[in-house]
Write a protein that binds this DNA or RNA. Structure first.
Lengths: 215, 215
DNA sequence: CTGCAGGTATTAACAATGTTAAATCACGAA
DNA sequence: TTCGTGATTTAACATTGTTAATACCTGCAG
């Protein structure tokens, strides 16, 4: 019952949360998503096997960090939407820029969110999927609004949103993995992304009922 | 002088190439890019320290596999272009579909190509960059042709190509990492991508000389 | 034929990691 | 106090990346 929020007795240091925080710290310091479970334990000031009481394995700990990462991204995107104007296309662009900026500024979180966390279909992490789903839902809604404003009242908002997500995600990954960082600056990537998502909002995509998608 | 193609004496088994092949095999079997250097040596039938005569470290071996992966992608894209029609937009779409299909069908290669290979700016791998550059060059050319056919004779072909690459890469990664594979099939992703790249070809993007990019 | 030099590979070892089983500790309930 | 159970540590194992030292050729000089 240690995983519950309120047990019969509370343990003040709350090791589980401390471990997640230590993992996030180490990832931030190294700038990478590759951290050692033992180093996390040492940072938290506990024995090297202590994490196994709270997490099934290393991937489960990283998934917990990924959940926090998605929550922070969600927060950043909410702030970006609040600061954006009323034009649906610009709001979608703001969402994308926030996504890209988050990836560039917090590469450790971004890496963790998509590496060991969401991966193989056997053992998934429902917490990660839930919070990631919220981020995607916001994107679907913004995409639907932008496309509707552009005259596309298609039922395939999910497909258009997925393509928009891909544009954001692709630019982010190409930057983080090297190729794009030798071609352009983050500032320039943001401009390209803003133009791209607004372009995608204003064009007809293949309909799911029309498998041969003319365009 | 062991790295040269022809030394004074040839060593018939050609261990270096055998190690690269063994690594590709193991990656293909596990479907993942995470392989053990010792396992590679065992597969190649040599001692576990033998690879260190030909490769500085594990990353260097993986970079060699990445080079072969990029070469295969290049080949697949060349075939797709040869089979595609004359319409520049459709040719660009064919390039993207080939990229996505390669990623889905050969995830081990795709993962290796962007993981330890191209990464950190300190120690890069010129071979990987060279062959990756050829793939990107082809994309730039196809994008320039498609945009020119659509009436956009912009000098910023690189930016447009980078966005197109991002769309391909993003869909591929979202599929491989989970999110997209729960939303759509590869077939559907290909349709979405074909529509997206043609949309990007037909729209105005932010010009590099116009930092505030109106659209 | 002998021996030696150099490229090639093996052996052995080290530190670090993920993981598990067993032992220990702390502390409230009976 | 004693017991029991949640929480943590200790100790161990297998595996990994990596390196230094050593052995194995094989061709050539003497």
């Amino acid at each position: 019952m240690a995983t519950g929020i309120s047990g019969s007795t509370i343990h003040p240091p709350d090791l589980r949360q401390a471990l997640v925080a230590a993992a996030a710290e180490l990832a931030a310091e190294s700038g990478s998503a590759e951290i050692s479970l033992r180093a996390v334990a040492r940072r938290a000031g506990v024995s090297e096997a202590a994490p196994y009481y709270y997490f099934a394995d290393k991937a489960a700990l990283l998934a917990a960090v990924a959940v926090e990462g998605f929550a922070r991204l969600d927060q950043a995107q909410a702030a970006a939407m609040a600061a954006a104007g009323p034009h649906p296309g610009q709001r979608l662009a703001a969402l994308g820029v926030a996504y890209l900026r988050f990836a560039v500024e917090q590469p450790h979180y971004f890496g963790l969110m998509f590496r060991a966390a969401v991966q193989r279909p056997a053992d998934r992490y429902p917490d990660v999927e839930a919070v990631a789903g919220r981020v995607f839902d916001r994107l679907v809604e913004a995409t639907r609004a932008a496309r509707q404003a552009a005259g596309h009242d298609d039922a395939d908002a999910d497909g258009a949103a997925l393509v928009a997500w891909a544009a954001m995600h692709g630019l982010a990954r190409l930057w983080l993995d090297g190729p794009a960082s030798r071609e352009a600056s983050p500032r320039r990537l943001e401009q390209l992304l803003a133009g791209a998502v607004q372009a995608l909002a204003g064009v007809a995509l293949a309909e799911p009922d029309n498998p041969d998608g003319a365009l």
